[in-house]
Write a protein that binds this DNA or RNA. Structure first.
Length: 599
DNA sequence: CTAGGGTTAG
C-alpha cells in the first residue's frame, strides 16, 4: 500500500473523521510521514470545518516537516507566518513557488515586504508570476507605487492578474485616472479587470464613466458575473437608474448567476433606493441566502420610506431567525427608521436594547441617530443632552442634525451656537452657512445674514448646486438648479411655467422662506421656480403619459417650496411623484406626501 | 495547496 492513498481527508466532512484517519496513521506507524499527514493538516488548517488548534498540535509532533507543510501553516496562521518561515529556513528547507504568495499576504510592514522581495530572488523565484504578482499587491498595499511598477516592468510575462492588481492598487489610493490609463493599455482583459475599473469609478462617484465603461464591456460581449452585477447595481442605486437596475437583476435571473448574500443585498438596496419598496420586500422574502447585510438593507429601506413600524417588525423577525446577529449597522438603520417616523419612545428603547441586550458599543452614528430622533420631534433640549453626554466629541454631522432642526423649530440661540461650531468643524461645507443664514433671516437679523454671506465669500465657499436626476427611457437626465444645458431646456422651462400656473389656481403660494439661500447667487428671476427638482418633474411630465409615476433623485434635501409644489402637482396632473433626497423618500400622491410633512 | 474584483450606515 502506498502512503498516497492516505492523503484523503479533503473528502472528510468533519474533524471527527479526520481524527479517526489520524489515529489510523499513528497505529500504522505513519505518524511522522510528511506525505501521509499533509491531507490531514490541510483539512484542519484550511477547511471551514477544520480546527486550527489541532493543526498546530499536529504540526509540532512532526520531526521533519517539509516545505509543503510549512506552506500550509503559513496560510492557516498569517500572523505567525514570518516566525514559522524563519524556523523553516533554520531547518535548511528551500521555499518553493507556493511559499511566497501566502507569506507576502501576511506582511505587516513595508520593510518586511522588501526583505521578502530579496528572498524571492535569492531562492531563484524572480521569474515566478505568482510570487511577483503578490509582491506587486503588497507594495501597493503599502502605497509604494515605485516598487510595484518596478516589479511589474521587470516581469518577463505579466498576465491579466498583474495588470488588474496594478489597476485596483492605483484606484485604491484614489489615483483613478492613472488606473484608467493602465486599464486601457491592457493587452487582454477579463471580467475581473472590467469590474475593478468600473468599481473604481463607482466608488469615486464617477457614474457616467462607470456606465460608459460598462457599455463598452457589453459591446465586447464580456458576460456579467456576480461581482459585476453587484458593482453595477450599486451604480444604479446611486443614480437611481431603476430601468438599468432592473435589467441587471433580470440578467442575473436569466443567466442563473448565483445569488450570494452580497449580490442579494445589492438587489434589495437597488429596489429600495429606487423607490420600489414593495418589489424589494417581495424579493427579499423570496431569497434563500439572506446575510445580515440583506436584512440591514431592507430595514434601511423601510427607514428611508418612513415606515418605522415595518422596520421594527422586520427587526423582530430577524431576531427570531436566531442564526443572525444584528450588527451596528442594523441599529443605525433601525434608529433612523424611528427618527424618520417620529417614533421617539421606540428609538429610545432600541438604543438601550442595542447596548444592554446586544452589547454593541454605540458609535458616533448611533448618537447621530438619537440627536436626529429628538431634534426632528422638536425635543431640542433632549437632543442637546445627547450631544453633551456622548463619550466622543460630536462631529459636524451630529451637530448638523440638530442645527437643521433649530431652523425648522425656529430656535435662534441654540442654532446660532451650533451653526458657528459646525462651520468651524467643517468650513468647506456650504450647507451649514446656508442654514445659519436662514436662521438669522427668519428672525430678521439682516446684518448677521450679510456677515455669514461675507464669510462664505472670504473663504471661497460656494453653495453646492442642487442637482436632480430623472431616468427616462434608460437615459439618466441631470438637472442643475437654474441650468439650461439640457437639449430640451426651452420646452422644459415652458413646462415649469405651465406647471406653476396651474397649481397656483388650486392654492399654491410660493414659499419665499427658503429664498434667502438662493440670493447668495444673484439672479433676476425668482430662482425658486427653477430648482432642480422642478426642472426634473417638468421634464418627466413632458416625457411620460398622463398618470405615470415620476421618480426623481436629488443631491440635497428637497426644499420646503418644492415639497409644497410637488404635492400640488401630484394632484393637478394626477400622477405620483417619488422624490428621493439625501435623507429619505417623499411619495407625493393626490396632493399629499408620505412624510406627512414630518422631515 | 498559490495571485486580481462586489453589498449595507454616515
Amino acid at each position: 500500500m502506498t502512503t498516497s492513498s492516505w492523503v484523503i481527508p479533503w473528502t472528510c466532512g468533519s474533524m471527527a473523521e479526520v481524527k479517526q484517519q489520524h489515529s489510523l496513521l499513528v497505529r500504522m506507524g505513519l505518524w511522522s510521514d510528511n506525505h501521509a499527514v499533509s491531507g490531514i493538516l490541510s483539512f484542519c488548517s484550511l477547511s471551514k470545518q477544520g480546527d486550527i488548534d489541532y493543526a498546530l498540535k499536529l504540526f509540532t509532533t512532526l520531526p521533519n516537516p517539509d516545505t509543503f507543510l510549512y506552506n500550509t501553516l503559513f496560510k492557516a496562521f498569517p500572523s505567525h507566518s514570518l516566525l514559522f518561515y524563519s524556523h523553516m529556513l533554520q531547518q535548511s528547507l528551500i521555499p518553493n513557488t507556493f511559499t511566497f504568495p501566502s507569506l507576502l499576504r501576511a506582511c505587516n510592514s513595508y520593510p518586511e515586504a522588501k526583505q521578502l522581495h530579496a528572498h524571492v530572488f535569492k531562492f531563484g523565484l524572480g521569474h515566478d508570476t505568482f510570487a511577483l504578482n503578490n509582491l506587486i499587491h503588497v507594495y501597493l498595499a503599502f502605497r509604494s507605487f515605485h516598487d510595484a511598477t518596478r516589479v511589474f516592468s521587470t516581469m518577463p510575462h505579466p498576465n491579466v492578474v498583474s495588470w488588474t492588481t496594478l489597476v485596483s492598487g492605483y484606484s485604491q489610493w484614489g489615483l483613478v485616472d492613472r488606473a484608467f490609463r493602465l486599464f486601457q493599455l491592457m493587452p487582454c482583459k477579463n471580467s475581473v479587470s472590467w469590474n475593478a475599473m468600473i468599481a473604481a469609478f463607482v466608488k469615486t462617484n464617477r457614474f457616467p464613466e462607470a456606465f460608459a465603461l460598462f457599455r463598452r464591456m457589453r459591446m465586447e460581449k464580456v458576460p456579467l458575473d456576480s461581482f459585476l452585477a453587484a458593482t453595477m447595481l450599486s451604480a444604479c442605486t446611486a443614480v437611481a437608474a431603476l430601468d438599468q437596475g432592473k435589467w441587471i437583476h433580470g440578467y442575473v435571473e436569466r443567466t442563473g448567476i448565483v445569488l450570494d448574500s452580497k449580490l442579494a443585498s445589492a438587489i434589495v438596496d437597488m429596489y429600495c433606493k429606487c423607490g420600489c419598496l414593495d418589489k424589494a420586500f417581495q424579493l427579499f422574502c423570496g431569497f434563500k441566502v439572506r446575510g445580515v447585510s440583506s436584512w440591514n438593507c431592507m430595514i434601511g429601506g423601510f427607514a428611508m420610506h418612513g415606515k418605522g413600524k415595518e422596520a421594527i417588525r422586520l427587526f423582530k423577525e430577524m431576531e427570531e431567525e436566531a442564526v443572525l446577529v444584528p450588527d451596528a449597522i442594523t441599529f443605525v438603520n433601525l434608529l433612523t427608521a424611528c427618527a424618520h417616523s417620529g417614533m421617539v419612545e421606540e428609538g429610545r428603547y432600541y438604543f438601550d436594547y442595542m447596548v444592554h441586550i446586544h452589547g454593541i458599543e454605540p458609535t458616533k452614528e448611533h448618537y447621530g441617530c438619537m440627536v436626529d430622533l429628538f431634534a426632528r420631534a422638536g425635543q431640542l433640549e433632549e437632543a442637546k443632552k445627547v450631544i453633551d453626554e456622548m463619550p466622543m466629541s460630536p462631529d459636524a454631522t451630529v451637530l448638523g442634525a440638530l442645527l437643521g432642526a433649530c431652523r425648522i423649530h425656529g430656535n435662534l440661540e441654540l442654532g446660532e451656537e451650533l451653526g458657528k461650531r459646525v462651520i468651524e468643524l467643517d468650513p468647506g461645507n456650504s450647507g451649514r452657512y446656508v442654514i445659519l443664514g436662514n436662521i438669522y433671516a427668519s428672525c430678521g437679523k439682516w446684518e448677521q445674514v450679510a456677515r455669514v454671506r461675507k464669510m462664505m465669500d472670504d473663504r471661497g465657499v460656494k453653495k453646492e448646486p442642487g442637482v436632480s436626476i430623472i431616468e427616462m427611457e434608460g437615459v439618466v437626465n441631470e438637472f442643475v438648479a437654474g441650468g439650461k444645458d439640457h437639449p430640451l431646456a426651452e420646452a422644459i422651462y415652458a413646462k415649469v411655467y405651465e406647471m406653476l400656473e396651474s397649481i397656483r389656481l388650486i392654492g399654491y403660494v410660493p414659499d419665499t422662506d427658503g429664498l434667502l439661500h438662493d440670493l447668495v447667487e444673484e439672479e433676476r428671476e425668482n430662482p425658486l421656480f427653477y430648482h432642480s427638482e422642478k426642472l426634473a418633474i417638468a421634464y418627466g411630465l413632458l416625457k411620460t403619459k398622463w398618470g405615470e409615476t415620476l421618480r426623481v433623485t436629488k443631491n440635497l434635501r428637497v426644499c420646503k417650496d418644492c415639497h409644497q409644489a410637488s404635492k400640488f402637482v401630484s394632484k393637478v396632473y394626477d400622477c405620483d411623484i417619488i422624490i428621493r433626497d439625501t435623507n429619505r423618500f417623499h411619495h407625493f400622491s393626490k396632493g399629499e406626501c408620505s412624510c406627512q410633512d414630518y422631515w
